[in-house]
Design a protein around this nucleic acid. Structure first.
Length: 273
DNA sequence: CCATCATCCTGCCGGC
DNA sequence: TGCCGGCAGGATGATG
């Protein structure tokens, strides 16, 4: 499921192929995927527009078009956005295709949870889901102090706090479990119970896990592909996610599994306190 | 404020 | 072999 590292890899892999190209045609195969806030025909706003740049905020991908219009994409679980040089036939779960000068961008999503939205670029920050997002994990303004401040007063479990996009943007179930393992903290711990030393460990673990994920090309546990259709490699480096019942890579203990914050959660009963 | 649950959706897997 | 129930989960909104 695309979390920050995966969306960042989609952004980077697409950018090198589509920036500067003009949208010639747009086809929608499953209309529900498109959330049109303006009530205008997407075609009127997309055709003839050039791709200017690609951005990202948390797990949201932005495709900025000339003419001050931006496409917002969220991939949820199984969403994909792949660029094909030249022609490419739509596949079973292809919901939208952007036809460019030299190729096509195919949006597909087996589970149909992902959405595409079109907004005026100037209003991007006003979109509720975007406006609510917490700081970017690698923004210099996201300091250890800021992190501690955002955690303070929370009565939820620390896993729930990490999954909450208002705490920090971009963490999902995979990187939440990985960061908590790296920090040696049990997912079901109450946020308020964390010592300052643990908050610092967790801060470093969040950045460490996300950075490692980005550099490995993301986690292709099952469905994830980047904008070139390639898999990532981080699934080979996971400490806990998807490894319940297997041995901890650090201490050899059998990894435990719980349901925390409504999500499957894997942890090491020895390494995490 | 927080937790839990239903909703959306389809492929996969284990059990029988 | 084939059917079926359960599971996977990000964001949102309802409910307790």
């Amino acid at each position: 499921m695309p979390e920050l590292p995966e969306v960042e890899n989609i952004r980077l892999s697409l950018a090198k192929n589509i920036i500067g190209q003009e949208i010639k045609e747009f086809k929608l195969f499953w209309p529900d995927v498109f959330v049109n806030a303006t009530d205008l025909d997407p075609n009127d706003l997309l055709i003839g527009k050039k791709v200017e740049s690609l951005g990202r905020r948390g797990k949201y991908l932005f495709i900025h078009l000339a003419g001050s219009v931006t496409l917002i994409l969220h991939f949820r679980m199984t969403g994909k956005l792949i660029y094909y040089q030249g022609e490419h036939e739509p596949e079973k779960h292809t919901h939208a295709v952007f036809y460019l000068e030299n190729g096509q961008i195919h949006h597909s999503d087996m589970r149909k949870f992902g959405r595409i939205q079109l907004v005026e670029t100037a209003l991007l920050g006003k979109v509720p889901a975007i406006a609510k997002l917490g700081p970017e994990p690698f923004d210099e303004r996201f300091s250890i102090e800021v992190f501690g401040q955002r955690l303070s007063g929370k009565k939820s479990t620390i896993k729930s706090a990490l999954l909450d996009q208002e705490t920090v943007a971009g963490i999902g179930n995979i990187y939440a479990d990985e960061a908590l393992f790296m920090a040696g903290i049990r997912p079901e711990r109450r946020t308020a119970s964390l010592k300052i030393s643990e908050v610092i460990l967790l801060y470093d673990a969040i950045q460490g896990a996300l950075k490692a994920g980005i550099e490995a090309g993301g986690t292709s546990f099952r469905d994830y592909r980047d904008g070139d259709g390639n898999k990532g490699l981080f699934q080979e480096n996971l400490y806990v996610y998807g490894r319940a019942g297997q041995n901890c890579k650090v201490c050899g203990s059998v990894l435990g599994k719980t349901k925390t914050a409504g999500r499957t959660t894997v942890f090491c009963p020895v390494c995490q306190i």
